[in-house]
Design a protein around this nucleic acid. Sequence first.
DNA 1: TGCAGTAGTTTCTTTTTATATACTAATATT
DNA 2: AATATTAGTATATAAAAAGAAACTACTGCA
Lengths: 116, 116
Amino acid sequence: MSFLSEKECEGPIKCPVMTTLSVIGGKWKPGILWELQNNEILRFGQLKKRLGTITQKMLTQQLRELETDGIIIRKIYPEVPPRVEYRLSDYGKSLSPVLNEMANWGTGHLQTITSK
Amino acid sequence: MSFLSEKECEGPIKCPVMTTLSVIGGKWKPGILWELQNNEILRFGQLKKRLGTITQKMLTQQLRELETDGIIIRKIYPEVPPRVEYRLSDYGKSLSPVLNEMANWGTGHLQTITSK
DNA sequence: TGCAGTAGTTTCTTTTTATATACTAATATT
DNA sequence: AATATTAGTATATAAAAAGAAACTACTGCA
């Protein structure tokens, strides 16, 4: 009937929806996840190009957070010039139903608001 | 295979995940939606009490945004002292699969991070 | 010697979000 | 006449998120 228990959304106890938001929220994370969902492996520069207007600082920062949360895997090749590859972890792949639902609803909502 | 098309996440075209985020994101909206999902009808003051530490300004602001997006319905009773009731619209109820997935994943994630 | 290439880091500024606090209106109750 | 009640507004402030721009390291190549 409900999607979370009363206690989980009260007082100092964390609401699980907000927990999810803390992992995939923000301006760039959805785009990063989307790219990694579609491409399996991407280097830093490729990711940056695909995201278009993101700054290096933001990309690094968001990637680090996703890595810390166990969503993505960062693989460094000790070469010069440097090469770093990013991919979704298995845990990160477990987000796909969430992202799917969000994307579906968002697509419908976009139609709703642009057609009236 | 994928949850959104390439174009939908590029350039000036809006990413549908971010569209959804723009409606349900932020610090207080998940909590508001959760309360209205569980209680059907709530007055301003009841909502405020349940959310604990939210300020009146933020509550008003977030409620107005949800109303503008068609997610909730605001019913004013011309009484003194004033009475205003909030409830989810049918459109707002269409968010429940999204919130469900988010809550499920968030619950699992909370366990993951607190058990290690 | 000096430049290209990659994946960053650092510092500073701007923008966006959120908070704190005080104030209002209209009536009923004390 | 003062006070409580409810759902807000208004104004100012603080904190968080994002952006801009410059800088670094290491090596190969011209």
